[in-house]
Simulated scan of single mutants.
Amino acid sequence: MTALTAVPDTDRRPGAFAELTRANARELIRDPRSFFFVLIFPLVFMAMFLFMGTLNPSDGGGGFDPMRAGIPAVLMMAFMSLAFFGTATPLISLRQKGTLRMLGTTPLRRTTFILAQAPVRFAIAIGQLAALSAAALATGFLEPSAIGRLLVTCALGLAMLFSTGYLVAARMRNAELANGVLALAMPVLLMLSGVFLPLEILPGTVRAVAEHLPTTYFADALRQDLVGVAGGPIVTAWLVMAGVAVAAAAAAVALFSWTDGEKR
């Protein structure tokens, strides 16, 4: 029996949303795959960049600085892991197990169920942001005056990624297939966003596509705010992320179903 089977049979009585939120937190922590990708995997990458920094410390010149490149890359990867492996695939798995079908027999609304996923995941994201912001402050990359702008960037980026994760969960029906697709898509998106490789080295057509990906706008804004790298207009990046978040969220709510064969 999963943690979500113990949620209340209605979302209209006081405390029902809080109970559903706690059940989702337990479900996330108990899933070993989600726990690894959401909490352990980003730490492994951060350790890798720290190790690279000890081998190739920055001399203050224009050379490659592993920490300056690594901090925004790890934060973006952590957020994507949380949205995809920590949100989309657990929801797909719950549908496969029949848990969502059980919830669908109650007065629980789709919007309540989807929103109850957010608190624990945003709490984890805040912890990840705090840890990497502290690292950026300690290394002198993050200016205290840029913290407010960084919070706006991260809030919009998280909204975009979570909405996309919900949309994936709304349409895909097989958790193993979803894991495979997302495991392939995430590194590709990270590479094309420019957090691991500069976009200038990409072939012309690939670069033209990569420059207009929503994740590229998020990566560019993160690098500007978190480690002080020059980039494009920050307001443009915010508008793109907000637009994608609204569109994906609306589609996720409209397409979400409790079972594979639910009629609309």
Score class of each variant (00 low, 15 high):
1 M>H: 06
2 T>S: 06
3 A>R: 10
4 L>T: 10
4 L>G: 04
5 T>V: 07
15 G>A: 03
19 E>N: 01
23 A>L: 05
25 A>F: 01
26 R>P: 00
29 I>G: 04
30 R>I: 05
32 P>V: 05
32 P>M: 01
35 F>K: 09
37 F>W: 15
40 I>W: 09
40 I>S: 02
43 L>S: 12
44 V>G: 07
45 F>K: 02
46 M>E: 07
47 A>K: 03
48 M>R: 09
49 F>K: 04
53 G>D: 11
58 S>T: 13
59 D>P: 01
60 G>H: 08
66 P>D: 07
69 A>W: 14
70 G>P: 01
70 G>V: 10
75 L>P: 12
78 A>G: 12
81 S>G: 09
83 A>I: 04
84 F>A: 10
88 A>E: 04
90 P>M: 04
100 L>C: 02
102 M>N: 11
106 T>N: 08
107 P>M: 01
111 T>R: 12
111 T>S: 12
111 T>Q: 06
116 A>N: 00
117 Q>M: 11
117 Q>T: 07
126 I>K: 08
126 I>W: 08
129 L>K: 01
129 L>P: 02
130 A>E: 05
137 L>A: 07
142 L>C: 09
146 A>H: 05
146 A>R: 10
148 G>P: 09
149 R>I: 10
151 L>M: 14
151 L>N: 12
158 L>Q: 12
163 S>I: 00
165 G>Q: 06
167 L>S: 00
173 R>D: 11
173 R>P: 00
176 E>P: 02
178 A>F: 06
186 M>I: 15
187 P>M: 08
191 M>H: 10
192 L>D: 11
192 L>E: 08
192 L>M: 13
195 V>W: 08
198 P>Q: 14
201 I>V: 15
201 I>H: 00
213 L>F: 10
216 T>D: 13
217 Y>P: 01
218 F>L: 15
221 A>E: 06
222 L>I: 14
227 V>N: 14
227 V>D: 11
228 G>N: 03
230 A>M: 13
231 G>R: 13
234 I>E: 07
240 V>T: 05
240 V>W: 05
243 G>H: 01
246 V>N: 09
246 V>F: 06
247 A>G: 00
248 A>T: 04
253 V>H: 01
254 A>P: 00
255 L>A: 12
256 F>Y: 03
258 W>Y: 12
258 W>M: 01
261 G>K: 11
262 E>C: 07
262 E>P: 01
